[in-house]
């Protein structure tokens, strides 16, 4: 067991990454209570295994790896089937919107609510969702994301690519359903 002062310092540093872990857990579990349970368990495990953490390395990535491994331990029964992600083809939202006469940024992106973006992220399968969380939300490099997830960089890139395709498809579907764009041509933007 570490000296009390060392343990306190370790805990304080670890807690600076709490928002990242909580956000990740919330996006993985979709439930604030489960997210808190998962994060608390991850911190207790981190404290127990703090000797395996190398000072000066990426503590955020190390903690995230502990948290997501706990998540997968709990849900490992669904891991295999969870990997699948419907093939949406090469869906490029930018091209799609341009083809339909919309100005992609000002007509569409600026009008999509944050809650809809989060909902689109939440519909991604967890293995794809966690790559988006690490790279797009938390700013991990492909290398750090690969180490955190225990997969090759190529897997990070392919999951990220497919996740983004799916995400763009979801946002496009939302934009059509909500009347932000009309699939046949010009956009229609209801304003408050």
């Amino acid at each position: 067991m570490a000296e009390p002062a060392a343990q306190t310092a370790f805990a304080e540093e670890a807690l600076t990454h709490l928002d990242t872990l909580y956000r990740g857990a919330l996006r993985l579990t979709h439930d604030p209570d489960q997210a808190q349970d998962l994060v608390q368990e991850a911190y207790l495990r981190a404290l127990r295994y703090q000797h395996s953490y190398q000072a000066g390395t990426n503590m955020k990535a190390w903690l995230f790896a502990i948290m997501r491994n706990l998540f997968w331990d709990r849900f490992k029964g669904v891991r295999k089937e969870d990997v699948s992600l419907d093939d949406v083809g090469e869906f490029v939202l930018y091209d799609k919107l341009r083809d339909e006469g919309a100005r992609p940024e000002s007509d569409v992106l600026d009008k999509i609510a944050a809650s809809e973006v989060v909902a689109a992220v939440d519909t991604l399968p967890p293995l794809h969702r966690e790559v988006v969380l690490l790279v797009d939300v938390e700013g991990f490099s492909y290398k750090d994301a690969a180490e955190t997830l225990g997969v090759p960089i190529g897997t990070v890139m392919s999951r990220l690519h497919r996740a983004r395709q799916q995400l763009q498809k979801s946002l496009y579907d939302y934009a059509v359903e909500s009347g932000i764009v009309r699939p046949s041509g010009m956009r229609q933007v209801p304003q408050q």
Binding site: R23, A114, G139
Partner: peptide, 11 residues
């Protein structure tokens, strides 16, 4: 947009 939307959640 993805980053800012998901970053709204804090512990």
């Amino acid at each position: 947009l993805v980053k800012h939307s998901c970053e709204c959640d804090k512990a």
